[in-house]
Design a protein around this nucleic acid. Structure first.
Length: 577
RNA sequence: GCCGAAGUAGCUCAGCGGAAGAGCAGCUCACUCGUAAUGAGCAGGUCGUGGGUUCGAGUCCCACCUUCGGCUCCA
């Protein structure tokens, strides 16, 4: 879709939002309007209505919209002076519009009229209401006026509109597809993990989920070892004093879990840095050790507002694939290049080829000197340029302790997720008085780089599950092959074949249930097992397996040894799904 | 935390004031089977938790918990 198409679609949706507002106004005369823009997949409008709108009333609203569309009013643009606009919306009792006008003083005001409905709006709009051919109301949500928790909450109705019936249905199909590959649903269907009221936002990983988890983590360790990282493990529960010193008490208290043993207070770590700092301080360090790359798959706990928890995407207990790098200021650039290349290698291997990179710069509230920030930010940008990575600048979005690079990956449904991050930390080395001995024999303060590739391992697995719709590439599949004996007559041969796979470290299962072959195949397909190996009297006689691939169906047959070596090669290659 | 919705068998869901239901999964039995569902039978639920209204409550009301769609937040 080009830019012009997308502008036309926005116009259509924006007009549909007006029609919806008009319809709501007819059905709920006491409504006061918030705002109603077009958004990525449709539109919404915020309403202040005393009674609760429920989805059951969508049909009624949609019918009213159909009527308005059938009336085919033109969208008429009018320019008003500020005072005329204020008079108009005061007459209409539209308090929120008046508030918006406050911010538009001295500007020319445009309003659009559609039949008897008038709205403060820049436009553009369609020429006539009759041009809206296909729309649907989708969902309902509360939304704070101007996104401010302190302000009243309005009722937001989401809908979507398309140029024709067919595209609307296409979109609804896509939504359905996304629903089918929802990691929460697949997590249940594929028996990967579960969530329980006893531990809100803290997933229980089931055996198959653990295999998936460990496959990713083992690969992660392999790559990190190869790139000179050493791994540590530090405690989850650490004393209060540490959190005071780190600044988390002041900046992060609301998200922390606290425990008390007698008089002594502890907290569950919400971040891994203080642990690695204690490790660092345990011995004296020389500049010769730098860059010192310390990795930690550290479990952190963060209290979240109850309404925000969401499957594996937003949890309260998770593992960060963390690493902290201690280095000299002049090593920053090279180190960033190295880390960026590591992160992108990991993404490529697990199957994400599309990504975006952002640099977040100095926020309003920050620590350290402006010069340090500018040097550091320039170093980040220089490093990305050197690595040949395109990036955007995210003004003022850095952490209070330093600028950062964020990596966003795009999944197979083109949805974007922020995962990796590289952060320069000006705060911790000073707070904890970190030192190294330089070539001059004097003590200096090291630079600390904080980085993660996956972000939260749990969340990353959720993204992977949806990306692959549960049909993982062989190297990540919880069960890589299942042997399906045609009948009990082939059981002996089948279990012999199984043992040979097991001996080669392949994750294999034998389906020895007394069921028909069709039934076993159906089960294995539903479980999205990559290889189904059918064995009957024919195979037993020839010493082969008949191969059925999850995606391609029947795929010939092969000798057991030959097939094992093919599978081992495919696993080792980490080929995509 | 806020707005709205939902929680009934392992799963998906029906029942919405008057004796707890279906399909799938599970178990038992029969069938020994060649590339996406063999048949029959059995078993399975203090209807999220706690209060209340009622002669009577999955069903109505209140509170809490969890989940879902958003807001806000964020790895």
């Amino acid at each position: 879709m080009n830019k012009r198409d997308s502008e036309q679609l926005d116009t259509l949706r924006h007009s549909a939002a007006h029609v919806m507002a008009a319809a709501v106004k007819r059905l709920f005369p006491s409504v006061r309007l918030g705002i109603g823009p077009a958004i990525e997949d449709g539109f919404y409008y915020d309403f202040d209505i005393p009674e609760a709108v429920t989805p059951e009333r969508f049909e009624e609203i949609e019918r009213e919209m159909e009527k308005i569309i059938a009336e085919d009013h033109p969208f008429e643009r009018r320019e008003l002076s500020h005072q005329e606009a204020v008079d108009l919306f005061r007459r209409l009792g539209e308090d929120y519009k008046l508030e918006l006008l406050e911010g538009l003083k001295g500007e020319k005001i445009t309003v659009y009229r559609h039949g008897d409905f008038v709205d403060l709006c820049q436009g553009p709009h369609l020429e006539r209401g009759g041009q809206i051919k296909a729309f649907k109301l989708l969902s309902l949500a509360g939304a704070y006026w101007k996104g401010d928790e302190q302000k009243p909450m309005l009722q937001r109705i989401y809908g979507t509109a398309f140029p024709d019936r067919k595209s609307l249905e296409g979109y609804l199909k896509l939504v359905e597809e996304a629903r089918k590959r929802d990691h929460r649903r697949l997590g249940k269907e594929l028996d990967l993990f579960s969530l329980h009221p006893e531990a809100p936002g803290s997933p229980f990983f089931h055996p198959r989920g653990v295999v998936l988890y460990q496959s990713v983590v083992e690969y992660w360790r392999e790559v990190h070892r190869a790139r000179g990282y050493r791994e540590i493990m530090t405690p989850v529960v650490l004393e209060d004093s540490l959190w005071h010193q780190s600044g988390h008490w002041d900046h992060y208290k609301d998200h922390m879990y606290f425990v008390k043993f007698g008089e002594q207070g502890f907290a569950l770590k919400p971040m891994n840095c203080p642990g690695v700092i204690i490790y660092y301080k345990q011995t004296q360090h020389s500049y010769r050790e730098f860059p010192l790359r310390i990795a930690e798959l550290g479990r952190v706990h963060r209290r979240e507002l109850t309404g925000v928890l969401h499957g594996l995407f937003r949890v309260q207990s998770f593992v960060i694939d963390d690493a902290h790098i201690f280095c000299l200021p002049e090593q920053i650039k090279d180190e960033i290049v190295e880390v960026a290349s590591l992160i992108l290698e990991i993404y490529r291997t697990v199957g994400f080829s599309e990504y975006q990179v952002e640099i977040s710069t100095r926020p309003e509230s920050f620590i350290g000197s402006v010069e340090d920030w500018e040097t550091a930010t320039a170093a980040l940008a220089a490093a990305l340029r050197e690595a040949g990575i395109d990036f955007q600048i995210n003004e003022g979005e850095g952490a209070f302790y330093g600028p950062k690079i964020d990596f966003h990956i795009r999944d197979s449904l083109k949805r974007s997720y922020q995962c990796g991050t590289i952060q320069l930390d000006f705060s911790m080395p000073a707070r904890f008085n970190l030192e190294y001995v330089g070539p001059d024999g004097a003590r200096h303060r090291p630079v600390m780089i904080h980085r993660a590739a996956l972000g939260s391992v749990e969340r990353f697995l959720g993204i992977l599950i949806e990306h692959y719709a549960g049909a993982f590439p062989l190297w990540l599949s919880p069960v890589q092959a299942r042997i399906l004996p045609v009948s009990a007559k082939a059981l002996d041969y089948a279990s012999g074949v199984k043992e040979r796979f097991v001996g080669e470290g392949i994750r294999v299962e034998l389906d020895d249930r007394p069921e028909k072959l069709n039934w076993k195949i159906r089960q294995a397909q539903k479980e999205k097992i990559p290889y189904m190996l059918v064995v009957g009297e024919k195979e037993a006689a020839a010493g082969t397996v008949s191969i059925r691939r999850r995606s391609a169906g029947e795929s010939g047959s092969a000798g057991v040894d030959e097939f094992i070596s093919r599978v081992k090669q495919e696993i080792a290659s980490k080929a995509g799904g």
